[in-house]
Write a protein that binds this DNA or RNA. Structure first.
Length: 484
RNA sequence: GGCUCCAUGGUCAAGCGGUUAAGACUCAGCCCUCUCACGGCUGCUACUGGGGUUCGAAUCCCCAUGGAGUCACCA
Protein backbone atom coordinates (compact mmCIF):
# COMPACT_ATOMS: atom_id res chain seq x y z
CA UNK A 1 0.00 0.00 0.00
CA UNK A 2 1.24 3.43 -0.88
CA UNK A 3 1.86 5.89 1.92
CA UNK A 4 -1.55 7.02 3.07
CA UNK A 5 -2.33 10.73 3.15
CA UNK A 6 -5.72 11.94 4.34
CA UNK A 7 -6.95 15.39 5.11
CA UNK A 8 -9.57 17.28 7.02
CA UNK A 9 -10.59 20.48 5.31
CA UNK A 10 -12.98 22.51 7.42
CA UNK A 11 -14.36 25.95 6.77
CA UNK A 12 -13.47 28.06 9.75
CA UNK A 13 -16.94 28.87 10.98
CA UNK A 14 -16.12 29.18 14.64
CA UNK A 15 -17.51 25.86 15.81
CA UNK A 16 -17.03 22.18 15.20
CA UNK A 17 -20.15 20.39 14.13
CA UNK A 18 -20.48 16.81 15.32
CA UNK A 19 -20.75 15.56 11.76
CA UNK A 20 -17.52 17.29 10.82
CA UNK A 21 -15.88 15.95 13.92
CA UNK A 22 -16.69 12.43 12.85
CA UNK A 23 -15.44 12.97 9.31
CA UNK A 24 -12.27 14.41 10.76
CA UNK A 25 -11.92 11.57 13.23
CA UNK A 26 -12.28 8.88 10.57
CA UNK A 27 -9.74 10.59 8.34
CA UNK A 28 -7.41 10.73 11.32
CA UNK A 29 -8.01 7.15 12.40
CA UNK A 30 -7.52 5.88 8.89
CA UNK A 31 -4.25 7.74 8.52
CA UNK A 32 -2.93 6.62 11.89
CA UNK A 33 -4.07 3.06 11.34
CA UNK A 34 -1.96 2.89 8.19
CA UNK A 35 0.95 4.88 9.53
CA UNK A 36 0.00 7.62 7.13
CA UNK A 37 -0.13 11.38 7.28
CA UNK A 38 -3.08 13.44 8.40
CA UNK A 39 -3.26 16.89 6.89
CA UNK A 40 -5.26 19.88 8.06
CA UNK A 41 -6.28 22.33 5.38
CA UNK A 42 -8.35 25.41 6.03
CA UNK A 43 -10.95 26.22 3.43
CA UNK A 44 -11.59 29.87 3.96
CA UNK A 45 -12.45 30.99 0.46
CA UNK A 46 -15.93 31.99 1.44
CA UNK A 47 -15.33 35.46 2.81
CA UNK A 48 -18.95 35.92 3.77
CA UNK A 49 -18.78 33.08 6.21
CA UNK A 50 -15.39 34.02 7.55
CA UNK A 51 -15.29 34.33 11.32
CA UNK A 52 -12.46 36.00 13.18
CA UNK A 53 -10.37 33.62 15.27
CA UNK A 54 -12.13 30.63 13.85
CA UNK A 55 -8.92 28.93 12.81
CA UNK A 56 -7.88 28.87 16.45
CA UNK A 57 -11.16 27.19 17.25
CA UNK A 58 -10.21 24.44 14.82
CA UNK A 59 -6.82 23.97 16.48
CA UNK A 60 -8.36 23.94 19.94
CA UNK A 61 -11.06 21.53 19.01
CA UNK A 62 -8.66 19.07 17.43
CA UNK A 63 -6.42 19.31 20.43
CA UNK A 64 -9.22 18.67 22.87
CA UNK A 65 -10.49 15.82 20.76
CA UNK A 66 -7.04 14.27 20.82
CA UNK A 67 -6.60 14.52 17.08
CA UNK A 68 -3.12 15.59 16.10
CA UNK A 69 -2.48 16.70 12.55
CA UNK A 70 0.88 16.06 10.97
CA UNK A 71 0.69 18.91 8.51
CA UNK A 72 -1.28 22.12 8.52
CA UNK A 73 -0.97 25.89 8.57
CA UNK A 74 1.05 25.59 11.77
CA UNK A 75 3.00 22.51 10.72
CA UNK A 76 4.58 22.77 7.33
CA UNK A 77 5.14 19.46 5.66
CA UNK A 78 6.24 20.80 2.31
CA UNK A 79 2.82 20.82 0.73
CA UNK A 80 1.78 24.30 1.81
CA UNK A 81 0.33 26.75 2.01
CA UNK A 82 -2.41 24.98 3.94
CA UNK A 83 -4.82 27.86 3.99
CA UNK A 84 -6.86 28.07 0.86
CA UNK A 85 -7.00 31.84 0.71
CA UNK A 86 -3.21 31.81 0.45
CA UNK A 87 -3.43 29.56 -2.56
CA UNK A 88 -5.65 31.86 -4.60
CA UNK A 89 -3.13 32.45 -7.34
CA UNK A 90 -2.72 28.78 -8.05
CA UNK A 91 -5.99 27.74 -9.49
CA UNK A 92 -6.33 29.82 -12.64
CA UNK A 93 -3.19 28.37 -14.17
CA UNK A 94 -4.43 24.86 -13.52
CA UNK A 95 -7.77 25.73 -15.06
CA UNK A 96 -5.98 27.01 -18.13
CA UNK A 97 -3.99 23.83 -18.27
CA UNK A 98 -7.21 21.89 -18.15
CA UNK A 99 -8.61 24.00 -21.00
CA UNK A 100 -5.53 23.22 -23.04
CA UNK A 101 -6.01 19.53 -22.35
CA UNK A 102 -9.65 19.65 -23.37
CA UNK A 103 -11.10 19.02 -19.93
CA UNK A 104 -12.53 22.50 -19.65
CA UNK A 105 -13.49 25.52 -21.72
CA UNK A 106 -14.18 29.22 -21.52
CA UNK A 107 -17.77 30.35 -21.26
CA UNK A 108 -19.04 33.87 -21.89
CA UNK A 109 -22.72 33.27 -21.44
CA UNK A 110 -24.69 35.95 -19.63
CA UNK A 111 -26.71 35.29 -16.52
CA UNK A 112 -29.84 36.04 -18.52
CA UNK A 113 -29.06 33.40 -21.09
CA UNK A 114 -28.29 30.89 -18.39
CA UNK A 115 -31.59 31.56 -16.69
CA UNK A 116 -33.49 30.98 -19.90
CA UNK A 117 -32.09 27.49 -20.06
CA UNK A 118 -34.54 25.76 -17.72
CA UNK A 119 -35.88 22.54 -19.22
CA UNK A 120 -39.36 21.07 -18.88
CA UNK A 121 -38.93 20.47 -15.14
CA UNK A 122 -37.39 23.86 -14.61
CA UNK A 123 -34.04 22.23 -13.98
CA UNK A 124 -31.15 24.12 -15.40
CA UNK A 125 -28.43 22.39 -17.25
CA UNK A 126 -25.86 24.22 -19.24
CA UNK A 127 -26.07 23.43 -22.94
CA UNK A 128 -22.35 23.61 -23.76
CA UNK A 129 -23.12 26.65 -25.88
CA UNK A 130 -19.62 28.10 -25.59
CA UNK A 131 -17.86 24.82 -26.21
CA UNK A 132 -18.36 25.38 -29.93
CA UNK A 133 -16.53 28.71 -29.90
CA UNK A 134 -13.40 28.65 -32.00
CA UNK A 135 -10.02 29.18 -30.42
CA UNK A 136 -9.70 32.48 -32.22
CA UNK A 137 -13.05 33.74 -31.10
CA UNK A 138 -12.33 32.80 -27.52
CA UNK A 139 -9.01 34.59 -27.66
CA UNK A 140 -10.61 37.65 -29.22
CA UNK A 141 -13.26 37.88 -26.55
CA UNK A 142 -10.68 37.32 -23.85
CA UNK A 143 -8.53 40.10 -25.32
CA UNK A 144 -11.54 42.36 -25.39
CA UNK A 145 -11.80 41.89 -21.66
CA UNK A 146 -15.14 40.18 -21.79
CA UNK A 147 -16.09 38.53 -18.47
CA UNK A 148 -15.81 34.77 -18.53
CA UNK A 149 -15.94 31.64 -16.46
CA UNK A 150 -14.23 28.33 -17.05
CA UNK A 151 -16.40 25.26 -17.17
CA UNK A 152 -15.59 21.62 -16.92
CA UNK A 153 -16.18 19.74 -20.15
CA UNK A 154 -18.07 16.59 -19.36
CA UNK A 155 -18.78 13.94 -22.02
CA UNK A 156 -22.40 13.81 -23.14
CA UNK A 157 -22.59 10.07 -23.29
CA UNK A 158 -21.29 7.04 -21.50
CA UNK A 159 -21.05 6.47 -17.80
CA UNK A 160 -18.46 7.41 -15.24
CA UNK A 161 -17.63 4.85 -12.62
CA UNK A 162 -15.50 4.38 -9.57
CA UNK A 163 -15.31 2.23 -6.51
CA UNK A 164 -15.99 3.84 -3.20
CA UNK A 165 -14.37 2.22 -0.19
CA UNK A 166 -17.61 2.17 1.74
CA UNK A 167 -20.34 2.32 -0.90
CA UNK A 168 -18.76 0.07 -3.44
CA UNK A 169 -19.29 0.53 -7.12
CA UNK A 170 -20.84 3.83 -8.16
CA UNK A 171 -21.78 4.63 -11.70
CA UNK A 172 -23.32 7.82 -12.99
CA UNK A 173 -24.50 8.56 -16.53
CA UNK A 174 -22.41 11.38 -17.97
CA UNK A 175 -25.45 13.05 -19.46
CA UNK A 176 -26.72 13.69 -15.96
CA UNK A 177 -23.72 15.73 -15.03
CA UNK A 178 -23.47 19.39 -15.77
CA UNK A 179 -20.52 21.36 -17.04
CA UNK A 180 -19.94 23.03 -13.72
CA UNK A 181 -18.06 26.23 -13.31
CA UNK A 182 -14.48 25.75 -12.20
CA UNK A 183 -13.34 29.35 -12.24
CA UNK A 184 -15.83 32.05 -11.38
CA UNK A 185 -16.03 35.35 -13.21
CA UNK A 186 -14.03 36.95 -10.42
CA UNK A 187 -11.17 34.59 -11.22
CA UNK A 188 -11.62 32.56 -8.05
CA UNK A 189 -12.07 28.82 -8.13
CA UNK A 190 -15.24 27.12 -7.05
CA UNK A 191 -15.01 24.70 -4.18
CA UNK A 192 -15.17 21.73 -6.49
CA UNK A 193 -12.19 22.79 -8.46
CA UNK A 194 -10.08 24.08 -5.60
CA UNK A 195 -10.64 20.81 -3.84
CA UNK A 196 -9.40 18.67 -6.66
CA UNK A 197 -6.37 20.82 -7.24
CA UNK A 198 -5.52 21.06 -3.57
CA UNK A 199 -5.99 17.39 -2.93
CA UNK A 200 -3.76 16.53 -5.80
CA UNK A 201 -1.10 19.06 -4.94
CA UNK A 202 -1.09 17.89 -1.35
CA UNK A 203 -0.82 14.31 -2.54
CA UNK A 204 -3.99 13.29 -0.76
CA UNK A 205 -4.65 9.74 -1.88
CA UNK A 206 -7.55 8.87 0.40
CA UNK A 207 -10.37 11.37 0.27
CA UNK A 208 -12.71 10.97 3.22
CA UNK A 209 -15.81 13.15 3.30
CA UNK A 210 -19.59 13.25 3.56
CA UNK A 211 -21.92 11.39 1.18
CA UNK A 212 -23.06 14.64 -0.33
CA UNK A 213 -20.12 14.25 -2.66
CA UNK A 214 -20.79 10.67 -3.59
CA UNK A 215 -22.59 11.45 -6.80
CA UNK A 216 -20.40 14.35 -7.85
CA UNK A 217 -17.21 12.39 -7.38
CA UNK A 218 -17.28 11.11 -10.98
CA UNK A 219 -16.87 14.73 -12.04
CA UNK A 220 -13.80 15.05 -9.90
CA UNK A 221 -12.43 11.87 -11.34
CA UNK A 222 -12.96 13.21 -14.83
CA UNK A 223 -10.78 16.17 -13.85
CA UNK A 224 -8.07 13.95 -12.45
CA UNK A 225 -8.18 11.98 -15.68
CA UNK A 226 -8.06 15.06 -17.89
CA UNK A 227 -5.09 16.40 -15.98
CA UNK A 228 -3.41 13.06 -16.22
CA UNK A 229 -3.33 12.80 -12.43
CA UNK A 230 -3.82 9.66 -10.46
CA UNK A 231 -7.28 9.37 -8.95
CA UNK A 232 -7.44 9.13 -5.16
CA UNK A 233 -9.40 6.51 -3.26
CA UNK A 234 -12.67 7.68 -1.83
CA UNK A 235 -14.44 6.99 1.40
CA UNK A 236 -17.85 8.61 1.69
CA UNK A 237 -19.65 8.85 5.01
CA UNK A 238 -23.39 8.83 5.61
CA UNK A 239 -24.80 11.74 7.52
CA UNK A 240 -25.58 11.86 11.22
CA UNK A 241 -29.25 12.53 11.70
CA UNK A 242 -31.25 14.31 14.34
CA UNK A 243 -34.14 11.98 13.60
CA UNK A 244 -35.28 9.88 10.66
CA UNK A 245 -35.95 12.94 8.51
CA UNK A 246 -33.71 15.68 9.67
CA UNK A 247 -30.00 15.88 9.45
CA UNK A 248 -28.23 16.87 12.62
CA UNK A 249 -27.42 20.50 12.18
CA UNK A 250 -26.98 23.64 14.09
CA UNK A 251 -30.50 24.69 13.28
CA UNK A 252 -31.92 21.90 15.35
CA UNK A 253 -30.07 22.60 18.55
CA UNK A 254 -26.87 21.63 20.18
CA UNK A 255 -24.86 19.74 17.67
CA UNK A 256 -21.46 21.21 18.29
CA UNK A 257 -18.54 19.70 20.05
CA UNK A 258 -18.20 22.84 22.14
CA UNK A 259 -21.83 22.73 23.23
CA UNK A 260 -21.44 19.22 24.53
CA UNK A 261 -18.27 20.13 26.36
CA UNK A 262 -20.15 22.97 28.00
CA UNK A 263 -22.88 20.55 29.04
CA UNK A 264 -20.35 18.54 30.94
CA UNK A 265 -19.37 15.86 28.48
CA UNK A 266 -15.79 14.68 28.45
CA UNK A 267 -14.06 15.11 25.11
CA UNK A 268 -12.92 11.48 25.12
CA UNK A 269 -16.51 10.34 25.55
CA UNK A 270 -17.77 12.53 22.72
CA UNK A 271 -15.05 11.29 20.42
CA UNK A 272 -15.71 7.70 21.43
CA UNK A 273 -19.44 8.02 20.87
CA UNK A 274 -19.06 9.79 17.57
CA UNK A 275 -16.66 7.12 16.39
CA UNK A 276 -19.35 4.53 17.07
CA UNK A 277 -21.96 6.43 15.08
CA UNK A 278 -21.61 4.94 11.67
CA UNK A 279 -18.82 2.58 12.48
CA UNK A 280 -18.66 -0.48 14.64
CA UNK A 281 -15.65 -2.36 15.90
CA UNK A 282 -15.25 -6.08 15.43
CA UNK A 283 -15.75 -7.01 19.05
CA UNK A 284 -18.33 -5.98 21.60
CA UNK A 285 -16.25 -3.44 23.45
CA UNK A 286 -17.74 0.01 23.14
CA UNK A 287 -15.62 2.10 25.44
CA UNK A 288 -12.56 2.68 23.33
CA UNK A 289 -9.64 5.00 23.84
CA UNK A 290 -8.12 6.85 20.93
CA UNK A 291 -5.35 4.28 20.76
CA UNK A 292 -7.89 1.47 20.65
CA UNK A 293 -9.92 3.27 18.02
CA UNK A 294 -6.84 3.60 15.86
CA UNK A 295 -6.01 -0.03 16.30
CA UNK A 296 -9.50 -1.27 15.57
CA UNK A 297 -10.62 1.19 12.94
CA UNK A 298 -11.52 -0.51 9.72
CA UNK A 299 -13.39 0.57 6.61
CA UNK A 300 -15.36 -2.67 6.77
CA UNK A 301 -17.12 -1.50 9.89
CA UNK A 302 -18.43 1.71 8.36
CA UNK A 303 -22.14 1.61 7.69
CA UNK A 304 -23.81 3.00 4.62
CA UNK A 305 -27.06 4.19 6.08
CA UNK A 306 -27.52 7.41 8.02
CA UNK A 307 -27.38 7.10 11.77
CA UNK A 308 -29.46 8.96 14.28
CA UNK A 309 -27.63 10.78 17.02
CA UNK A 310 -28.71 9.43 20.40
CA UNK A 311 -27.65 11.72 23.18
CA UNK A 312 -28.92 9.27 25.74
CA UNK A 313 -26.35 6.75 24.72
CA UNK A 314 -23.59 9.32 24.63
CA UNK A 315 -24.68 10.29 28.11
CA UNK A 316 -24.31 6.73 29.27
CA UNK A 317 -20.87 6.47 27.69
CA UNK A 318 -19.88 9.70 29.36
CA UNK A 319 -20.97 8.19 32.65
CA UNK A 320 -18.71 5.24 31.98
CA UNK A 321 -15.80 7.61 31.43
CA UNK A 322 -16.57 9.47 34.61
CA UNK A 323 -16.68 6.23 36.57
CA UNK A 324 -13.21 5.39 35.39
CA UNK A 325 -11.82 8.69 36.69
CA UNK A 326 -9.81 8.89 39.91
CA UNK A 327 -10.96 11.37 42.53
CA UNK A 328 -8.29 13.85 41.50
CA UNK A 329 -9.03 13.48 37.82
CA UNK A 330 -12.69 13.95 38.53
CA UNK A 331 -12.08 17.07 40.55
CA UNK A 332 -10.00 18.54 37.80
CA UNK A 333 -12.94 18.52 35.43
CA UNK A 334 -15.66 18.90 38.04
CA UNK A 335 -14.38 21.86 40.02
CA UNK A 336 -16.07 24.45 37.82
CA UNK A 337 -19.38 22.74 38.48
CA UNK A 338 -18.81 22.71 42.22
CA UNK A 339 -18.15 26.42 41.98
CA UNK A 340 -21.43 26.84 40.14
CA UNK A 341 -23.37 25.07 42.86
CA UNK A 342 -24.83 26.70 45.96
CA UNK A 343 -22.45 24.68 48.08
CA UNK A 344 -19.27 26.39 46.99
CA UNK A 345 -16.34 24.86 48.80
CA UNK A 346 -17.94 24.56 52.19
CA UNK A 347 -17.50 20.80 52.20
CA UNK A 348 -14.64 18.49 51.36
CA UNK A 349 -14.70 18.14 47.62
CA UNK A 350 -12.80 14.89 47.67
CA UNK A 351 -15.52 13.30 49.74
CA UNK A 352 -18.15 14.75 47.45
CA UNK A 353 -16.24 13.51 44.44
CA UNK A 354 -16.19 9.97 45.78
CA UNK A 355 -19.95 10.03 46.18
CA UNK A 356 -20.63 11.74 42.88
CA UNK A 357 -18.44 9.69 40.56
CA UNK A 358 -20.82 6.71 40.27
CA UNK A 359 -23.85 8.95 40.31
CA UNK A 360 -23.13 11.50 37.63
CA UNK A 361 -23.39 10.97 33.89
CA UNK A 362 -22.62 14.48 32.77
CA UNK A 363 -20.82 17.04 34.87
CA UNK A 364 -23.60 19.59 34.70
CA UNK A 365 -25.67 17.36 36.98
CA UNK A 366 -23.34 18.12 39.87
CA UNK A 367 -24.98 21.28 41.23
CA UNK A 368 -28.46 19.77 41.36
CA UNK A 369 -27.07 16.73 43.15
CA UNK A 370 -25.41 18.67 45.94
CA UNK A 371 -27.41 21.86 46.30
CA UNK A 372 -29.52 20.31 49.04
CA UNK A 373 -26.51 20.66 51.33
CA UNK A 374 -26.90 24.40 51.20
CA UNK A 375 -30.68 24.33 51.45
CA UNK A 376 -30.93 23.06 55.01
CA UNK A 377 -34.06 24.12 56.88
CA UNK A 378 -37.53 22.92 57.80
CA UNK A 379 -38.69 19.93 55.86
CA UNK A 380 -41.62 17.53 55.73
CA UNK A 381 -41.37 15.12 58.68
CA UNK A 382 -43.79 12.70 57.04
CA UNK A 383 -40.76 11.43 55.20
CA UNK A 384 -39.84 9.58 58.38
CA UNK A 385 -42.79 7.27 57.88
CA UNK A 386 -41.60 4.27 55.91
CA UNK A 387 -43.96 1.35 55.72
CA UNK A 388 -41.66 -1.08 53.98
CA UNK A 389 -38.96 -0.49 56.57
CA UNK A 390 -41.59 -0.40 59.27
CA UNK A 391 -40.50 3.00 60.45
CA UNK A 392 -42.92 5.26 62.22
CA UNK A 393 -42.32 8.73 63.48
CA UNK A 394 -42.15 7.69 67.15
CA UNK A 395 -39.61 5.01 66.29
CA UNK A 396 -37.62 7.49 64.24
CA UNK A 397 -37.62 9.90 67.13
CA UNK A 398 -36.33 7.26 69.50
CA UNK A 399 -33.62 6.33 66.99
CA UNK A 400 -32.53 9.91 66.53
CA UNK A 401 -32.32 10.49 70.23
CA UNK A 402 -30.13 7.47 70.61
CA UNK A 403 -28.04 8.58 67.64
CA UNK A 404 -27.47 11.89 69.34
CA UNK A 405 -26.16 10.21 72.45
CA UNK A 406 -23.86 7.96 70.50
CA UNK A 407 -22.60 10.50 68.02
CA UNK A 408 -21.82 13.04 70.72
CA UNK A 409 -19.35 10.63 72.20
CA UNK A 410 -17.48 9.85 69.02
CA UNK A 411 -14.12 11.49 68.85
CA UNK A 412 -13.42 13.91 66.00
CA UNK A 413 -10.55 11.70 64.92
CA UNK A 414 -12.95 8.82 64.37
CA UNK A 415 -15.46 10.93 62.52
CA UNK A 416 -15.27 9.09 59.22
CA UNK A 417 -17.57 6.91 57.25
CA UNK A 418 -16.05 3.63 58.32
CA UNK A 419 -15.93 4.26 62.06
CA UNK A 420 -19.29 5.96 62.05
CA UNK A 421 -20.75 2.94 60.38
CA UNK A 422 -19.68 0.62 63.19
CA UNK A 423 -20.94 3.00 65.83
CA UNK A 424 -24.26 3.63 64.16
CA UNK A 425 -24.61 -0.05 63.37
CA UNK A 426 -24.33 -0.78 67.07
CA UNK A 427 -27.31 1.44 67.75
CA UNK A 428 -29.51 -1.00 65.90
CA UNK A 429 -28.44 -3.68 68.34
CA UNK A 430 -29.06 -1.69 71.46
CA UNK A 431 -32.44 -0.64 70.14
CA UNK A 432 -33.12 -4.13 68.81
CA UNK A 433 -34.12 -2.99 65.38
CA UNK A 434 -32.81 -3.34 61.85
CA UNK A 435 -29.86 -1.25 60.83
CA UNK A 436 -31.92 0.30 58.07
CA UNK A 437 -34.29 1.58 60.69
CA UNK A 438 -31.42 3.58 62.09
CA UNK A 439 -29.66 4.66 58.95
CA UNK A 440 -32.75 5.90 57.16
CA UNK A 441 -34.00 8.32 59.83
CA UNK A 442 -30.47 9.49 60.53
CA UNK A 443 -29.80 10.29 56.91
CA UNK A 444 -33.06 12.17 56.77
CA UNK A 445 -32.27 14.02 59.96
CA UNK A 446 -28.93 15.06 58.59
CA UNK A 447 -30.08 16.16 55.14
CA UNK A 448 -33.79 16.84 55.13
CA UNK A 449 -34.21 15.29 51.71
CA UNK A 450 -35.43 11.91 50.56
CA UNK A 451 -32.58 11.14 48.19
CA UNK A 452 -28.96 11.91 48.71
CA UNK A 453 -25.79 10.93 46.90
CA UNK A 454 -24.57 8.74 49.72
CA UNK A 455 -25.69 7.12 52.95
CA UNK A 456 -26.21 8.45 56.46
CA UNK A 457 -22.67 7.96 57.63
CA UNK A 458 -21.21 9.38 54.46
CA UNK A 459 -23.37 12.43 54.96
CA UNK A 460 -22.27 12.69 58.55
CA UNK A 461 -18.63 12.51 57.57
CA UNK A 462 -19.15 15.17 54.94
CA UNK A 463 -20.96 17.52 57.34
CA UNK A 464 -18.49 17.05 60.13
CA UNK A 465 -19.25 16.40 63.77
CA UNK A 466 -20.36 19.85 64.74
CA UNK A 467 -22.78 20.42 61.88
CA UNK A 468 -24.05 16.86 62.06
CA UNK A 469 -25.02 17.29 65.68
CA UNK A 470 -26.58 20.67 65.02
CA UNK A 471 -28.69 19.24 62.27
CA UNK A 472 -29.58 16.22 64.34
CA UNK A 473 -30.69 18.44 67.19
CA UNK A 474 -32.81 20.49 64.82
CA UNK A 475 -34.42 17.40 63.34
CA UNK A 476 -35.18 15.92 66.74
CA UNK A 477 -36.99 19.10 67.64
CA UNK A 478 -38.87 19.11 64.37
CA UNK A 479 -39.89 15.51 64.71
CA UNK A 480 -40.76 15.75 68.39
CA UNK A 481 -43.13 18.61 67.66
CA UNK A 482 -45.02 16.49 65.15
CA UNK A 483 -45.14 13.38 67.32
CA UNK A 484 -46.62 14.85 70.47
C1' G B 1 -39.15 15.39 -10.83
C1' G B 2 -34.11 13.18 -13.01
C1' C B 3 -29.84 10.90 -11.14
C1' U B 4 -26.93 8.39 -7.11
C1' C B 5 -27.26 5.71 -2.81
C1' C B 6 -29.46 3.31 1.54
C1' A B 7 -33.10 -0.22 4.32
C1' U B 8 -32.12 -5.80 10.97
C1' G B 9 -35.82 -3.95 17.65
C1' G B 10 -37.54 2.99 19.84
C1' U B 11 -31.83 4.19 19.00
C1' C B 12 -26.59 2.50 17.76
C1' A B 13 -25.59 -1.97 15.49
C1' A B 14 -23.34 -7.61 14.57
C1' G B 15 -24.53 -10.71 10.61
C1' C B 16 -21.58 -11.55 4.22
C1' G B 17 -26.44 -18.65 1.73
C1' G B 18 -27.79 -23.11 6.79
C1' U B 19 -27.41 -18.90 13.78
C1' U B 20 -32.20 -20.37 19.28
C1' A B 21 -30.89 -13.33 14.44
C1' A B 22 -25.12 -11.10 18.77
C1' G B 23 -24.00 -6.97 21.86
C1' A B 24 -24.94 -1.87 23.71
C1' C B 25 -28.35 2.36 25.02
C1' U B 26 -33.43 2.97 26.54
C1' C B 27 -37.61 0.70 29.14
C1' A B 28 -39.73 -3.03 32.81
C1' G B 29 -38.88 -6.50 36.75
C1' C B 30 -35.77 -8.91 40.37
C1' C B 31 -31.27 -9.14 43.53
C1' C B 32 -27.83 -6.06 46.37
C1' U B 33 -29.04 -2.01 49.63
C1' C B 34 -29.93 3.33 54.92
C1' U B 35 -32.26 6.85 50.01
C1' C B 36 -30.36 7.67 45.04
C1' A B 37 -26.81 5.60 42.15
C1' C B 38 -23.16 1.74 41.07
C1' G B 39 -22.98 -3.54 40.37
C1' G B 40 -25.42 -8.41 39.19
C1' C B 41 -29.48 -11.09 36.88
C1' U B 42 -33.97 -11.59 33.91
C1' G B 43 -37.32 -9.80 30.42
C1' C B 44 -39.93 -6.73 26.27
C1' U B 45 -39.00 -5.25 21.24
C1' A B 46 -36.25 -6.35 14.76
C1' C B 47 -34.84 -8.76 9.40
C1' U B 48 -40.29 -2.73 5.32
C1' G B 49 -43.66 -5.50 1.65
C1' G B 50 -44.12 -8.62 -2.69
C1' G B 51 -42.01 -11.67 -6.25
C1' G B 52 -37.98 -14.68 -7.86
C1' U B 53 -32.87 -17.73 -7.60
C1' U B 54 -31.69 -21.92 -4.33
C1' C B 55 -32.49 -28.14 -1.09
C1' G B 56 -32.17 -23.72 2.02
C1' A B 57 -32.42 -16.74 2.22
C1' A B 58 -31.88 -11.14 6.97
C1' U B 59 -27.92 -12.42 3.56
C1' C B 60 -28.14 -12.94 -3.97
C1' C B 61 -31.62 -10.66 -8.10
C1' C B 62 -36.11 -7.74 -9.54
C1' C B 63 -40.26 -4.62 -8.30
C1' A B 64 -42.85 -1.70 -4.79
C1' U B 65 -42.58 1.28 -0.48
C1' G B 66 -39.91 4.28 2.75
C1' G B 67 -35.52 7.25 3.66
C1' A B 68 -30.96 10.05 2.44
C1' G B 69 -27.96 12.79 -0.91
C1' U B 70 -27.50 15.64 -5.34
C1' C B 71 -29.02 18.59 -9.47
C1' A B 72 -25.50 26.89 -7.84
C1' C B 73 -20.45 31.92 -10.48
C1' C B 74 -22.16 27.86 -1.75
C1' A B 75 -18.79 25.21 0.43
Amino acid sequence: MEKVRTRFAPSPTGFMHIGNLRTCLYAYLFARKHNGTFVLRIEDTDQERYVEGAVDVVYNTLKKAGINHDEGPDKDGGYGPYIQSERKGLYLQYAKELVAKGGAYYCFCSKERLESLGDKDGVHKYDKHCLSLSKEEVQARLDAGEPYVIRQNIPTEGVSEYDDLVFGHISVPNEDMEDNILIKSDGMPTYNFANVVDDHLMAINYVIRGVEYLSSTPKYNLMYDAFGWERPHYMHLSPIMKDAQRKLSKRYGDANFEDFLAKGYLPEAIVNYVALLGWSPKGNQEKLSMAELIEQFDVDGISKSPSIFDEQKMRWLNGEYIKSLSVDEFLEVANPYFDMSKVGDKYDRKLLAKMLIPRVEILSEIPEKINFLAEWGEYDVDMYEHKKMKITKPLALRVLQECKVVLQNIDESKWNDEDLKTEVGAIAQTLECKSGQVYLPLRLALTGVATTPGGATEMAELLGKRESLERLEFSIGLLAKSVE
